[in-house]
């Protein structure tokens, strides 16, 4: 589904990604972890072309992301993305957030978009909040709306960029529960996160990044059993130590 091959990226002279290659098969859940500044968020943003890259290729469902001829908005509409800071549109109600792209991008009628939006809002357990503005919701609720907003587009894959990092601890689980449910329903997911509990529960594979390189790309069992690289061992001992 998602194929990343030999991707390198520079900010000026500074190389943020070095020859990254991996793939995510249909229905797979791949967790990307690593210390901050390791390039994991940058990599996931390359997948839907939010960040340009200078070398290598990324294809999603057979369509090349870096190709200038690709209709990026059209491709992005098929890939859901959830951000660290939710990025709901604060000047719109929850319902408007859910229906905007359905109407403007997919050309659905407002009735159709509303029905879809409310159904997915119900699925993330927030039906009662349809008329509210994002600023009146808690962080966990906002992130669940953001997930529903992405799902409204009927995505073929979902990208999560540290979806729980900006949340208060007591709200992390409500978001993770939604994500676990999604994974169990068979959604193809690429998740940048430090939540190793989530990785243990639903990940098929774990990618460990450090210094812009993919250091480890292996099954969950192998990763939590005996990571081969020293850096991954050190990273795991640091975040699992408490």
């Amino acid at each position: 589904m998602i194929n990343i091959s030999g991707v390198s990226k520079w900010y000026g002279d500074f190389q943020v990604l070095t020859d990254c290659s991996t793939e995510v098969a249909k229905g797979d859940v791949v967790v990307v972890c690593g210390p901050s500044g390791s390039g994991k968020s940058t990599l996931i943003k390359c997948v839907n072309g939010l960040e340009p890259f200078q070398k290598g290729t990324i294809t999603v469902d057979g369509i090349s992301v870096g190709d200038p001829k690709t209709d990026l908005p059209k491709l992005r509409a098929r890939i859901g993305m959830v951000f660290q800071n939710f990025e709901l549109f604060p000047h719109m109600t929850v319902t408007q957030n859910l229906t905007l792209a359905q109407i403007k991008v997919l050309g659905r009628s407002s009735e159709e978009a509303l029905a879809k939006g409310l159904a997915l809002l119900d699925r993330v357990g927030l039906k009662a909040h349809a008329g509210k503005f994002p600023g009146n919701l808690s962080g966990g609720q906002q992130q669940r709306v953001a997930i529903a907003r992405a799902l409204c587009m009927d995505p073929i894959a979902m990208l999560f960029d540290e979806p729980t990092s900006a949340l208060d601890p007591e709200m992390i689980n409500e978001v993770l529960d939604v994500m676990v449910q999604l994974a169990q329903d068979g959604m193809t997911m690429m998740v940048v996160t430090h939540e190793m509990g989530f990785a243990r529960r639903v990940a098929d594979r774990v990618i460990f990044m450090d210094g812009g390189c993919i250091v480890e790309d292996t099954t969950k069992e192998a990763f939590f059993g005996t990571p081969r690289s020293e850096r991954a061992q050190l990273f795991l001992s640091k975040i699992l130590g408490h």
């Binding site: 943003k45 839907n48 939010l50 990026l72 908005p73 059209k74 992005r76 509409a77 098929r78 890939i79 859901g80 993305m81 951000f83 800071n85 990025e87 709901l88 549109f89 905007l100 792209a101 403007k104 991008v105 997919l106 907003r149 992405a150 587009m153």
Partner: peptide, 11 residues
């Protein structure tokens, strides 16, 4: 991030 979110939705 607001623009990114818009782009990510296909706008």
């Amino acid at each position: 991030g607001q623009v990114s979110a818009g782009y990510a939705l296909g706008l």
